[in-house]
């Protein structure tokens, strides 16, 4: 059977390894194998100490994002035959601290995600007996594409601004904030705007657009950020021209 070499970044600080090193592993090149299948082959057959995250292997859970030949990719959706003859370089997601091998530290992203309150906010909850909050197909279409985000963080690995300035709230968090701002059932846009309109919010973005290119789910975070910028700029103009208006 054909083989392909996976050049995998290994980093084991517990073993007093101070620098990541690339280690070559030869795995079978099968037409139905994704990069993740190759990594699982290494783990099962060649070196059980390799550490990486994965779960659903079908592009839903967002766990298996890594740098494949320098590009942020879901390894379950990137096929080895498309990368032949190799070698294929596999590294942890760029712009994040590495814990071990291909596992990055999610703490910063999780903090940012919750800071933009990506959930439905209501001033007054209507009682259960009043039924569901109804929504028209047009109202659903307003935000649907932004709701496809699986928090895989490929957009953070692709974003040069986040790479330079870790305080930037970042593409996925802003896209998700925007998703709830656009939801007809939500009333929390003021609360979110307070966070997004900060210098570390939307204003850090210089509209490079790599986030939207990297997104494996067809979300357009760059577009969301531009729309959020416009909303924040309109609010700022209103505050300037109508300073007596209560926020």
């Amino acid at each position: 059977m054909d083989q392909i070499t996976l050049r995998v970044a290994r980093y084991r600080p517990d073993d007093e390894e101070t620098e990541p090193v690339l280690v070559d592993y030869d795995v079978p090149l099968r037409p139905d194998w994704a990069v993740l299948d190759g990594l699982n082959y290494i783990k099962d057959e060649l070196d059980g100490t390799l550490s990486y995250r994965w779960s659903c292997r079908m592009g839903i859970c967002g766990s298996c994002g890594m740098m494949v030949d320098g590009e942020p990719k879901l390894t379950c959706a990137t096929f080895l035959v498309d990368l032949a003859p190799g070698p294929v370089r596999i590294e942890p997601l760029a712009n994040f601290p590495v814990i071990r091998d291909l596992i990055v530290d999610l703490t910063d992203f999780m903090h940012k995600l919750s800071s933009v309150k990506p959930w439905l906010i209501r001033q007054d909850e209507q009682p259960v007996e009043d039924g569901e909050y109804l929504q028209t197909p047009a109202q659903l279409d307003e935000f649907k594409q932004f709701s496809m985000c699986i928090n895989c963080m490929l957009c953070y690995a692709a974003c040069p601004v986040y790479g330079l300035d870790g305080s930037f709230v970042g593409p996925a968090a802003i896209a998700l904030a925007h998703r709830y701002d656009l939801d007809s059932r939500d009333e929390g846009d003021r609360q979110r705007l307070t966070i997004l309109a900060q210098p570390d919010g939307v204003w850090d973005c210089t509209f490079v657009g790599e986030c939207s290119t990297a997104c494996p789910k067809g979300v357009d975070p760059a577009g969301a950020i531009q729309q959020a910028k416009l909303a924040a700029a309109q609010e700022a103009m209103k505050s300037l021209l109508l300073p007596w208006r209560s926020r």
Partner: peptide, 16 residues
């Protein structure tokens, strides 16, 4: 991000 709201000129610069 948990700091209090700061006034920033960025929106006006961005509009221009």
């Amino acid at each position: 991000m948990t700091s209090p709201r700061r006034v920033t000129p960025e929106p006006f610069v961005w509009l221009m």
